[in-house]
Design a protein around this nucleic acid. Sequence first.
DNA 1: ACATACTTTAGAATAATTATAAAGTAGTTA
DNA 2: TAACTACTTTATAATTATTCTAAAGTATGT
Lengths: 137, 137
Amino acid sequence: MNNKNKTFIDKLRSSGLRPTNQRVEISKFLFNRKKTFHFTVEELKNSMNLKRSKKISTATFYNTVHALKSAGHLKEFSLENNTSYYDTNITSHHHFFDNGKVIDIKSDKITFQKLPEAPKGKKIKNVEVVIRLENNN
Amino acid sequence: MNNKNKTFIDKLRSSGLRPTNQRVEISKFLFNRKKTFHFTVEELKNSMNLKRSKKISTATFYNTVHALKSAGHLKEFSLENNTSYYDTNITSHHHFFDNGKVIDIKSDKITFQKLPEAPKGKKIKNVEVVIRLENNN
DNA sequence: ACATACTTTAGAATAATTATAAAGTAGTTA
DNA sequence: TAACTACTTTATAATTATTCTAAAGTATGT
């Protein structure tokens, strides 16, 4: 096992998952890239399985993505189409939504002048902004 | 038809819907209340049908809610559970999310110091903030 | 009251996701 | 290394939210 795989395997182990072949490939596919990756499980499955002779099963994709998410290696978000989206950028940040397309906005691009207090007994876990876009005229 | 029903019927007509009995009852149930109402179609169906001997069908709930939403009388939003939620408060506003519970935040409770530009050829349709809450340890 | 186009409804179909249980594999132990 | 045990993978069934379909019913203009 070469060193390049180390980080992917660590993400799996810290998610409570044994690094099986399938999982290591999924983890590589997700995290071995420069830019943030936004995806649905179905999209992930299709793009990985397209190139493979031996397909990875749907259940394995769901299990792996869920475990990575629970461990905090992926972030889940929703559009208005009853599908879960995941984001490899787990730092607190914001989004443009442009007809189903999602673009990250770095956290420091948005600052607040005024924010409400949390209700009694509660505290703020995080604040996320969605800026919906439409075409110019 | 008394005057009280007028506004509910108007909402239906302006959504391109004939004011049938079922639709008028749904519209009343949704809009004849002081406070904003957040719901899923399933919740709406269950709470209305519980009291009724003659049930309104699922398809009618979906059709009516969709038409009201398309006409701008309801606003749709999503949590992370692959279900569509609707909000009778259609004014631009923000939300607290507290473990599946949703609380409105008036628009003027949040103001921005800095917001990013829209990408080229696009403009901002709206900006919505979600403040996630957790319990005070 | 008639005609017609729109509605309602039960039930089938679809899409995303979760559950099941049999066959396979990783990691430990002898 | 062999054997064991617990964890995995997989195909398939089940579930949930939603949409579709087509037959029977109703609103609305004349």
